[in-house]
Simulated assay, not measured.
Amino acid sequence: MTLLEIGHLREIAEQYAYGDGAEGAFRRLADQIAHKARESGEGWLTYDFGDAYDFGDVAFSHGYGEVRGIFVGRVDDRGATLRITGETSSEFRDSFEDPLDIGIEAGGTPYPITGDWTARFSAAVIKDAGASQYGAVDAR
């Protein structure tokens, strides 16, 4: 079953992007991509990411699901700054087993719930991480 089929794709993507933590996963991902860009310098850049997140606010049955993905883009050196452009591709994976997660549905058959989405990414970051708003890196 897919998130699109059950009507939760947009809500899951938005919960992941903006509703997880103080600034959402997209903000942390932006920091991580900026960190990698500073390390690698000018040229092509790929960055793998992923973790489990609580999606229970979308629907209690989702609980924790995993979002994994990859950023593919380019870093251009602009003197004191780096211009980063590209796209993130994200995949949601979960398994629905029991609506209350307490074993009520004895003999029930678990089934996977999947979904995917892409988002464009563009940022100009200061090379000096200490002087940039894209400085702190949260590994999550």
Rank of each mutant, 00 (worst) to 15 (best):
T2Y: 01
H8F: 11
Y18P: 03
A13F: 08
D128L: 10
D138M: 11
Y134D: 12
Q32Y: 04
A22M: 09
I12K: 00
A129D: 02
T2E: 06
S122P: 00
F71S: 01
F92R: 00
Y134M: 09
D20E: 14
G43T: 06
V67P: 10
A52E: 15
P99R: 13
V137P: 10
R28C: 08
T2K: 04
S89E: 06
I126N: 14
H62T: 09
D48G: 04
G107M: 13
A34Q: 12
G73C: 05
S132L: 09
G56C: 01
A13T: 08
E14N: 08
R28Y: 11
R10M: 00
Y134V: 10
D48F: 08
D77Q: 02
G108F: 15
E66D: 15
P110N: 09
L9V: 01
Y18L: 04
L100A: 13
S61W: 15
F96Q: 11
R10D: 00
Q133P: 15
G86C: 08
Y134S: 07
D128E: 12
I84H: 12
F60H: 08
D128R: 08
E91W: 13
T85C: 02
A17T: 01
A129N: 03
E105K: 14
A129P: 10
V58S: 03
I113Y: 05
D116N: 14
K36C: 06
V72W: 02
A13S: 09
D94W: 12
V58N: 05
A139K: 12
F92S: 00
T85K: 12
A52K: 14
H62R: 07
D138C: 07
E97V: 15
G41Q: 08
A136C: 09
D76F: 10
T85I: 12
E39G: 05
G21Y: 09
G50I: 06
F96M: 14
I102M: 15
Y53I: 07
G73E: 03
S95P: 01
T118L: 07
F71P: 03
A34E: 12
I33Y: 06
T81L: 10
D98W: 09
H8K: 12
F96T: 06
A124G: 08
A119V: 00
Y18W: 07
F26W: 14
G56V: 02
G79T: 05
T88W: 04
I33W: 05
D76Y: 12
G79R: 06
V137H: 12
R78A: 13
D51L: 05
Q32R: 13
F60A: 15
L3P: 04
F92N: 00
R68F: 10
E11Y: 04
D48K: 11
D54P: 13
M1A: 06
T88M: 07
G63Q: 08
R140P: 05
E66M: 13
I70R: 08
E39T: 01
D94V: 07
A30L: 10
T2V: 00
R38E: 01
H8N: 01
I104N: 11
E14M: 03
T109G: 11
H35I: 00
P112H: 05
S90G: 03
